[in-house]
Design a protein around this nucleic acid. Structure first.
Length: 721
DNA sequence: CGACGTCCCCTTTTT
DNA sequence: GGGGACGTCG
């Protein structure tokens, strides 16, 4: 392809972005504005015009999917081999750098990557060792603390801690890092931090890569955290340019450390002169875009952007006021059936919700109505217990001193190593300051009594390592599922068929991995053997969420999971105060703004038809909750919408009699639960519950944007509405 | 050791 | 309501 045909079909703004001069640039790419296209075309153009060689640039994404997509499109545009190109996820690229310079990074050549679950068990183990009270310090919270420290670029010694509690956390963090180093493992955040420190410390390595990567291109820049930004800055040095593509309005990962502020910092730190806004949307009709624009305009902290389209107004946005959650689900079922009759493919319809808990009732109704559906999210292939077990055996073949792997399977399948012998083993390892495997060998070597199970285990691992010598990866994997007794174990289990199928699938995956073109993969390791590569692949790329490929099915997912996707018709369910925006968000700084961006993302998924529904009551956490319509609904101009029911839905839907949640004395209360009321100061709200006794009755009311208020009945001046 | 009961928690998620 | 973690009993 020549240069012209690469650039053909771009609009002016896209063309401007693609052909910017050799300077840092920020591309503000609105939803559906051709962001990925601009990014890949920019790369193709740089290469095609001879400004850069494929090896002289780095392209960074957040997900493996995005990286793959970029390379696929690139190959379609240019007759180049993407083999060996530095394009991949932050973690994949850091892993690659660390493999290449493992000595300088202070890591063993075969270091293993801890995924989230591994990390948690590693922390739990450490806390037990340190005798830390896990009530006071819940392991999950400790994990969150450690990860957010690392993502801020802070080692334990650099973290500020004023009170006893945070000092303890810092101490655990420090010990955790020591433990990881002892075991030669790195968690996800560690990959980044370690790589950052490597580049910062080793001047010659840094200079080498700075000279190499004259261009660094970053996708979804608004999702970068502090450390990722520092890493990019370090790699770019003083002379290279950063081409950042992002959309501040779609920043929805603040809760996991993303800093939209990086966009402003980037402008300042890199003296960015080129800011290109891509505002023409090729996805949705204008009613949908206008609604999205209207919603997001209520956010104060924006870089400023307004989507437009040359497509017509399209259909109005349909709003449905459901009586309760069942009614809402039934409404969606009916509409989906109707859409199907109109010829819309099921796979082109999405059903979105704010939180996973909402999917249950929706699924129930879909199932009853015989509508095939597919739920995104949940367990991935390499996260399944049986697969992790098999992988643990493989990890021990690679490195028997991997305590996390050893602990996972030392007694699985059961071989008589109970909690007590395990404790003894850990105790011994601690005093000898060695790995559990080493300590197990010592014990067995000593011929100590009562170590029957342990003897068997040591023999098994030795046998495994012996037999693994010189065979293929697939054969090794087979060995890890059979010799170890894993498969046999599941054969005896009642519902083990799926698990066995997954173990067989793992062997297939190993075959496929061996056969593939390694250069085409972002986590290629220059130095490592194929087993290590496979283990990395499994950690870094947990595999597709279970795919029900081929079959036409309604797409169910959270709004977060829908980012980057588009559908002909979209249902957004549960558009209520407390759910969307989520109750928790109202307590957080700028929390509602992030929720609003989330709504913006949700709305902009739709090409032609958009449904927003809310329910007056719904079952949540086992009890009925009453909500009022989301403030986001009010933010959409009436001219764009069509109310499908002007009055609350007919009560015929109310099968379960949800309003009769009988707290026995309910009839004594002045207002029924669920009654809409008006308060002079707080406005409209819904009675949620009562607290206290008759002398001192407190009424709890959900005032929506004013929040949940508890008012003394005696003084609250309320008016029924 | 595993089966069963009880308690507790409960946004969003990628690597 | 329901899943996961933990504890007790056979």
């Amino acid at each position: 392809m020549d240069t012209d045909s690469i650039l053909a079909g771009l609009n002016n703004k896209q063309l401007e972005a693609v052909t910017l001069p050799h300077q840092s640039a920020l591309i503000l790419a609105g939803a559906g504005s051709g962001k990925t296209r601009v990014l890949t075309t920019r790369i193709a153009w740089l290469i095609q015009t001879g400004q850069i060689s494929p090896m002289g640039l780095m392209a960074v994404t957040f997900t493996n999917k995005a990286a793959k997509e970029m390379l696929t499109r690139l190959t379609a545009m240019l007759p180049i081999n993407t083999r060996g190109m530095w394009a991949g996820t932050f973690h994949g690229l850091c892993n690659r750098l660390l493999r290449a310079h493992y000595r300088e990074a202070g890591l063993p050549s075969t270091f293993q990557i801890l995924d989230t679950g591994d990390q948690l068990s590693s922390i739990k183990r450490l806390m037990k060792l340190l005798n830390v009270d896990d009530e006071k310090y819940p392991p999950k919270q400790v994990q969150g603390y450690i990860n957010s420290c690392k993502e801020e670029g802070l080692r334990a010694h650099a973290v500020e801690a004023y009170d006893a509690h945070s000092q303890k956390l810092r101490e655990i963090y420090e010990e955790y890092d020591k433990q990881c180093n002892r075991e030669g493992v790195a968690d996800f955040a560690e990959l980044l931090l370690r790589c950052y420190e490597l580049l910062e410390r080793e001047v010659h390595i840094r200079t080498h890569y700075q000279q190499r990567f004259q261009y660094i291109l970053v996708d979804e820049f608004q999702d970068t955290n502090r450390l990722q930004y520092l890493w990019l800055k370090l790699l770019a040095g003083a002379n290279n340019c950063l081409f950042a593509v992002g959309d501040d309005d779609q920043s929805i990962y603040g809760f996991r450390g993303a800093r939209v502020g990086n966009m402003r910092d980037f402008e300042r730190d890199f003296n960015v002169q080129n800011i290109v806004k891509l505002e023409e949307n090729y996805r949705s009709h204008s009613n949908i875009l206008d609604a999205a624009n209207a919603i997001i305009s209520h956010n104060k902290h924006r870089l400023g952007k307004n989507l437009w389209t040359s497509a017509g107004k399209g259909e109005p946005i349909r709003i449905y006021d459901a009586y309760n959650d069942t009614d809402e689900a039934q409404f969606i079922v009916d509409e989906v059936n109707m859409l199907q009759n109109e010829g819309v493919a099921l796979g082109d319809i999405a059903l979105l919700y704010r939180s996973n808990a909402q999917s249950r009732i929706l699924e129930h109704s879909l199932f009853a109505a015989n509508i095939p559906y597919r739920v995104y999210g949940g367990l991935r292939f390499f996260e399944r217990a049986e697969v992790k077990h098999a992988m643990a055996y493989l990890r021990l073949i690679a490195n028997a001193h991997d305590d996390t792997a050893l602990l996972r399977i030392i007694n699985f399948p059961a071989r008589g190593i109970g909690a007590r012998s395990l404790e003894q083993l850990q105790e011994a390892a601690r005093t000898e300051n060695c790995s559990l495997w080493q300590s197990a060998i010592n014990k067995v070597g000593n011929g100590k009594a009562g170590a029957k199970g342990l003897e068997g285990f040591v023999a098994l691992i030795r046998e495994l390592v012996d037999q693994a010598y010189g065979i293929t990866l697939a054969e090794m994997t087979e060995l890890a599922t059979t010799l170890t007794g894993l498969k046999a174990h599941y054969q005896n289990e009642k519902e083990g068929e799926d698990r066995i199928a997954n173990l067989e699938e793992l062997v297939t995956a190993a075959v496929a991995f061996s056969n593939q073109d390694f250069g085409n993969h972002n986590n290629v390791n220059d130095d490592a053997d194929i087993l290590t590569q496979f283990l990395n692949h499994a950690s870094l790329e947990a595999g597709e969420h279970q795919a029900d490929a081929g079959r036409e099915a309604l797409q169910l997912m959270t709004v977060h999971a829908a980012k980057g996707l588009e559908f002909n018709a979209v249902f957004i369910s549960g558009v209520e105060e407390g759910l969307f925006p989520h109750e928790q968000s109202t307590y957080e700084n700028n929390g509602v703004e992030e929720e609003r961006r989330l709504m913006y993302v949700a709305v902009t998924r739709a090409r032609q038809r958009l449904y927003l529904s809310h329910a007056q009551s719904r079952m949540l956490h086992g009890q009925v909750r009453y909500g009022i319509p989301s403030r986001f609904l009010d933010e959409i101009p009436d001219s764009l919408t069509k109310r499908l029911n002007s009055k609350p839905a007919p009560k015929t839907y109310a099968t379960g009699g949800v309003y009769q949640t009988s707290t026995s004395a309910q009839s004594n209360y002045p207002y029924k639960i669920g009654q809409s009321v008006r308060h002079a100061k707080f406005g409209e709200g819904v009675v949620v519950s009562y607290e206290g006794n008759a002398d001192n009755l407190v009424i709890k009311i959900n005032f929506g944007r004013e929040g949940m208020k508890s008012l003394a009945m005696e003084y609250a001046k309320l008016e029924k509405i």
